[in-house]
Amino acid sequence: MRDLKVTPIKNGTVIDHIPTGMALKVLRVLGITGDVNSTVSVLMHVPSKQRGWKDIVKVEDRELNPKELSKIALIAPDATINIIRNYNVAEKHTVALPDRAVGILRCANPNCITNSREPVESVFLVRSKEPLRVRCQYCDRELEDVAGHIL
């Protein structure tokens, strides 16, 4: 029995080991809304040896930059990123949550100075990785819904 549901890609990025249910958030973080020029495959709720179930996203003809990797780390801390060139895995990365998330989150406090027209990037200090807890360096507020505030 063939269990291959999606064929390998020629060039692009495979994001594997996404927590089940988070694939659509990964798409949103990558700015993939529907208006695409290359194939995007989304696999939700597939069996995983490590954690039972997982999601996978395959984006053809696009390689992710470090800022995009940091954003994915916020919602899928155990994700692995495979850069595919000519059907081969050219680069293999694990995402890593930095101690400071710079310019990738918007503060939920509407009265925070970073939400005004000031020439600064937001800075969040990662207080704990499991569970994920981040605090705005400017207004000291803890951000409750991290996935909902990714820029």
């Binding site: 406090n109 100075i113 207004c139």
Partner: peptide
């Protein structure tokens, strides 16, 4: 009146900034 204003101010000057209340 906004939270974090003093920390932001401190990033834009070499002079010491004293926070007298931010929001």
């Amino acid at each position: 009146p906004q939270e974090g204003a003093a920390r932001l101010a401190a990033e834009f000057t070499e002079r010491p900034v004293i926070n007298a209340g931010d929001g």
